[in-house]
Amino acid sequence: MSFGTFRRQGIYLALLLIPLPALASLGGNAASVNQDLTALRGDAPTVTAAAARTLAVQAADVTPVASPYQVKAFSTSFGTVVREYVYQGSVFAVAWNGPVIPDLAQLFGHANYAIYGNAVSAQHKAHSTHSNRRALTVSEPTLVVHSYGRVPHFTGSAYIPGLIPAGVSTTDIQ
């Protein structure tokens, strides 16, 4: 067993022992947007608990004019802007851009993050495909993810195909 392999198991074990915050969002209800906001702002090292309570606890509404769906936006503690797309009470897509890729487990929720993780692992193992560190596409029946860029400029989006409102183009999600 290599040293590295040993350490990886250590990481996974540690993750299991950490109490998990509320995860939801992609596929979740509209209230989960503010759970994401709280979780992703929460690790701001310079923001005290008291200060955090006085900061905006609502994501800003940045819905485009005449849009059939709502778009809510907030910034993470690392300065990355997250946008969540809501239609009839469900988050059908998320998008981000900024210096740090946000916590995708939080944004995607456990089930979607597992789908994403499995797809990324499968791509990595298939040496007949490429190993692009700067452009990633995951295209599964229940989850599509595009992720691009490099330090310190990342951008990406994810959506659940079955929840896209009729007449909405996925190219609007970015």
């Binding site: 590295g4 392999t5 350490r7 990886r8 250590g10 990481i11 540690a14 993750l15 740090v100 995708l104």
Partner: peptide, 19 residues
């Protein structure tokens, strides 16, 4: 091995690649 394991912010976007 000179530093503790990665903070969650580092490992939440995809697997840590340390081999």
């Amino acid at each position: 091995s000179g530093v503790p394991t990665a903070p969650s912010q580092c490992s939440s976007t995809g697997p840590i690649q340390d081999t």
